[in-house]
Design a protein around this nucleic acid. Structure first.
Length: 499
RNA sequence: GGGGGCGUAGCUCAGCCGGUAGAGCAACAGCCUUUUAAGCUGUGGGUCGCGGGUUCGAAUCCCGCCGCCCUCACCA
């Protein structure tokens, strides 16, 4: 069995808790019951049970299943809280009404156990809708105790390493990941409505490209070749445009072998799409329409959502701002004024001596401009040298038809009018390669050959789904929106993940 | 990789001017038929992240290491 990220922290001898619980499991076996049960014909979820009570009233039958996360004992009467994916319901076990054998079984239950309960819906003296149990079955015995009921699991490292505990101990965490799922569902629905087709392209690539990033390298034994985990699906999706698939998208897990931070996970989800006969202006319309809709979807119709200490308005249309204007406004330098740009870089403490002026310009942009962009903004018309896959402005070859949607100082995507001239493309890639050590890609001759077969003019877009979800659910760290974020494995090698 | 912070019972946390380790929840043994952070009585539970040093004595002071968080640098 493979280790998950982290895995159990240290394999240890069964402690006090596990021993007690194993004894109870044995006691269940002695009654002929399997403490790790099978299929259970629940009739209704806990939310449905509440509704049924409202509709059918006192005494309506209900069979529910869930995890028991609270017990309140009164000698001959025991209340338990049963949680399932729809919510929580109280269960009452009464010695007076339960068969003696069932009552004995109740005594073998522990917090964290998965149980099924059959009974009738009643309202208690305090008004709580409750399943008055006639029968209980253990569906899975928990051999380890759940975290404390009031504070839950708060230790950040434990929450990431043992997300399975985090998810049931902290309901808001599960809710957050459900909202992430909603966002992705809605992205798919939106794109399908617009005629996009979802495709899958190689994760293992003989050449990597489509972004500026260091790749992970792996090896295929039979072919005896090194392969790269993709840093972007871009070059394959454009090949599909050549092939005549006019509107395609992929929700692609991509891998970048770089630093880890609150905004960077080594693997993340990148939605890329390409639309034939469109340009970056169409992509702006698409982004603002999509994101406004996503905001509404997860917030019950609102377009104005909080993020950290800010409030963000996602309603379309978004602000459109020229890269050059923003640079002048916030950095005080004119785009193309090389001495001024280099001087500004030095005052910002940035290294500039061995870099192309466009690269320095962008360093200045990131340091001086990006923090000031709070409300959703399209930063458009970039220095061409930064954009080797982008078509230049018709009237200015130094400027590329590219934009980044920025929110709260964060780049949430990247889009442009796609470069479809194979000769210009080949030249741009070669220039890029000849330039800095930090290259966009290795030269992909097959990609250029594909362009020679004719790629329709197109707009292309990439959206960082994780960062978008961070914004929409107000999460301060990308680790909060990735179920199993990358962590350094803990414990002795090979110890994690095995029993 | 640089800087700052953190690591004590299953969980949440005290203790940290050195003097043999504590609380709440959880567990265990009891009492309790209307609670919902139930209550009451009693009991058990710790390699104080790991290793070294200083000291008569270290959870506490010093050094190294491991892990996590924040931050800066590279990136989306």
């Amino acid at each position: 069995m493979l280790a998950a990220w982290g895995g159990p922290i240290i394999p240890r001898m069964p402690g006090e808790y596990e021993q007690h619980r194993r004894k109870k499991a044995e006691a269940l076996r002695a009654q002929g019951l399997d403490p790790f049960g099978r299929r259970y014909p629940e009739t209704i979820d806990t939310a449905g049970a509440r509704k049924r009570f409202e509709a059918a009233g006192e005494g309506a039958p209900a069979t529910v299943a869930g995890r028991m996360l609270a017990l309140r004992e009164f000698g001959k009467l025991i209340f338990a809280d049963l949680w399932d994916s729809s919510g929580r319901i109280q269960v009452a076990f009464s010695k007076k009404t339960l068969p003696p054998q069932m009552w004995d079984r109740v005594k073998l239950l522990d917090l964290g156990d998965w149980v099924g309960v059959e009974g009738r819906l009643v309202r208690t003296r305090t008004g709580e809708i409750t399943v008055d149990a006639a029968r209980v079955d253990v569906l899975a015995k928990a051999l380890l105790p759940p975290p404390e009921k009031w504070h839950g699991l708060t230790d950040v490292e434990a929450r990431y390493r043992q997300r399975y505990v985090d998810l049931f101990a902290n309901p808001e965490v599960r809710d957050l990941f459900l909202r992430r799922s909603l966002v992705i569902d809605e992205v798919r629905r939106f794109l399908r409505e617009r005629g996009f087709v979802e495709v899958e392209t190689p994760v293992l690539q003989p050449l990597y490209g489509g972004a500026a990033a260091r790749p992970f390298v792996t090896h295929h034994n039979t072919l005896d070749v090194d392969l790269y985990l993709r840093i972007s699906p871009e070059l394959y999706l454009k090949r599909l445009l050549v092939g005549g698939m006019e509107r395609v998208f992929e929700i692609a897990r991509v891998f970048r072998n770089e630093g880890i931070s609150t905004r960077h996970n080594p693997e993340f989800t990148l939605m890329e799409l390409y639309q034939a006969f469109a340009d970056y202006g169409d992509m702006m319309e698409l982004v603002e329409t999509l994101v406004e809709r996503l905001a509404r979807t997860i917030s019950g119709g609102r377009t104005c959502l909080p993020f950290q200490d800010k409030v963000l308005e996602y309603k379309a249309p978004w602000r459109r701002a020229l890269y050059a204007d923003l640079l002048a406004e916030h950095a005080g330098v004119r785009l193309g004024d090389e001495p001024a740009v280099r001087a500004r870089a030095r005052t910002l403490g940035l290294e500039e001596s061995n870099k192309h002026v466009d690269v320095v310009t962008h360093d200045v942009f990131e340091a001086a401009v990006e923090p000031h962009i709070v409300q959703p903004t399209f930063v458009m018309d970039w220095p061409a040298r930064l954009c080797p896959l982008t078509k230049r402005k018709a009237d200015n070859p130094d400027i590329a038809e590219r934009f980044e949607p920025m929110v709260a100082g964060m780049e949430i995507g990247n889009a442009y009018t796609e470069l479809n001239d194979p000769d210009v493309q080949a030249e741009a890639l070669r220039t890029q390669l000849a330039g800095q050590q930090e290259t966009m890609a290795v030269f992909d001759a097959d990609f250029v050959e594909a362009l020679k077969h004719g790629m329709p003019p197109a707009g292309g877009l990439g959206i960082g789904i994780d960062r978008l979800v961070m914004l929409l659910v107000n999460a301060p760290s990308i680790r909060d929106v990735v179920l199993f974020p990358a962590l350094r494995p803990k414990g002795s090698p090979g110890a994690a993940g095995t029993v």
